[in-house]
Each structure stands twice: as structure tokens, then as C-alpha cells.
Design a binder for these strands. Structure first.
Lengths: 123, 123
DNA sequence: CTCCGCCTTGACGTGGACGTCAAGTCCAGT
DNA sequence: ACTGGACTTGACGTCCACGTCAAGGCGGAG
């Protein structure tokens, strides 16, 4: 299939696919007319990239998963490097969530206080 | 005081202060030599901007707080517009935290599963 | 032949909050 | 007089994941 179909079936755009290729995440054979030619395995790679990117993984962090699939594994997370990214991501998410919760609690407290001041006499 | 001192005392840089001025968050009198001249009230504004920006507020979201101080209130959150930003921020934070928690749980599950597969026979 | 849709590369634009550099001005100290 | 530090404006660079536009090529339908 050509790039348009791959984009459509992968739920993304041709621009994004060329961008992934520029990063070395995707590779492509060229047909006689110079156009990129893809197969079902490439669609698998695109799906892996998208599903990870959609939940907030940086494209660089999808690289081990893509490589893992290229190496013939059935899933992108069957390799140590991918699992390591999982671990790091969970740690990052934990830290991020904790920080946001602290900020939320702080803002909530400020909100409470400000509302208190605007209605000084009971109510 | 001049911009260098204000930056130092406000825990930021001269570049940032000029940027705030370009956004209309900060204003400045010019001395005879064309240099910016600030007072303690300006330092108060800078502190307000920084304390909000440091916890993730966009600069635009600090505008009501700055305006509130300019209007002579003792705190930046003594005005309805500021309180409204607080409310919106809490809602945004709640949504963001929920999303990140869902992602974290999903990644955790994937991690568990991947580790399971790599050690198939008990252990 | 012409049109349309698909493809190609190259390059600039986006957003947010500045960093960094250039070239010049101004003032205090020695 | 000179040096050094602080100041001025203007403008380009950064990060990330593309969006968007330009200018052109290629193939099939009518």
C-alpha cells in the first residue's frame, strides 16, 4: 500500500508518517515511480507508535517498541528495553501525578480562602 | 530600582521581565536615560506572576491576579476574575490527574503483563 | 488532451516562555 | 581617558510533533 492508505488505516496523516521516517522509526521501500511502498508489518509499527504516542509517550520512547517488533517479537513490549521504558514512564507518571495533586490541593486551599474573604459574615 | 535588581529580587531574569512587559503584565516608567524604573509594587507583581507560573499557571492566567493587585487589593486573588481562574484550574488539574492516573494504571498493567511473559514458569 | 487525485521534496509556521547573541548606549569607578 | 558592568532594542534559536503551503511528477478516467 502507499502512504495515503497507511495513514488512513493507521489513524494518522501522511505528514506524520514521513516525520516518523525522518526519525528512523519507519522505513520504506520505494516503488519504480519513487513512491513509498508499505506492507502490513508497517501498519503494525504505525499502530504501535500511535497507541503509545496517544497516551503521552514521546516518539523517542516508542523506538524500543518499534525495534522490538522489527526484531520479530509478537508484541512491542517483549524486549527489556521496552520494559525499561514502561518502568521509567510509571515513575514519571507517579511523580507528575503527585506534583499535580499537591498543586491542586494548594489551589483549592487558596480558592477556599478567597471565597471565605469575599463572604466574611457567615453564610 | 532598575530591571537587573528587580529580576534578582524576583527570582527571574531581565529577559523574562521584558517579556512580561511585552504582554502587558508589567508596566514601567522610564528614567531620564531611557532605562526602566521599578518600585516595590512592581516587585509584588513579579512575585505574584512567578508564584503562579511556578505552579503551572500560563502567563495569561496570571493576568487577573496582576490586575487585582493593580486595583489596590491586598492579594491577587481578592477579585472574582482571579477566583474564576482558580476554579478553572482546579477543574483542569482534576481532569489532568484523572487522565494521568488512567494512563499510569494502563502502563502498569502492560508492565505486569510483559514481566509475566518474560518469566513464564512461576517465580 | 485534460482533469483529478495521489504522490514527491523542501521549507516555513505553530505554541509558550523565554535563551542568547548583536550592536550600541549610559554611568560609576579608577 | 578608559574600563567594566548594566542597560537598550531587535531578532533569531529552542523544544516537539507535526500542519500547511508551494511547485512539481505520475497515473488512470473521461
Amino acid at each position: 500500500m502507499r502512504i495515503g492508505e497507511l495513514a488512513r488505516r493507521g489513524g494518522t496523516t501522511t505528514r506524520a508518517l514521513r516525520y516518523y521516517e525522518s526519525l528512523g522509526l519507519l522505513s520504506s521501500r520505494r516503488g519504480a515511480n519513487g513512491q513509498r511502498e508499505y506492507d502490513e508489518d508497517d501498519l503494525r509499527l504505525v499502530n504501535e507508535i500511535r497507541s503509545l504516542a496517544d497516551i503521552g509517550f514521546a516518539l523517542e520512547d516508542t523506538r524500543p517498541f518499534v525495534q522490538c517488533l522489527r526484531d520479530g517479537h509478537r508484541t512491542g513490549d517483549a524486549c527489556p528495553a521496552s520494559v525499561e521504558v514502561y518502568r521509567r514512564k510509571v515513575a514519571e507518571l507517579d511523580a507528575c501525578i503527585s506534583r499535580l495533586q499537591a498543586v491542586r490541593d494548594q489551589v483549592r486551599a487558596q480558592l477556599q480562602e478567597a471565597e471565605q474573604r469575599s463572604r466574611p459574615c457567615g453564610r
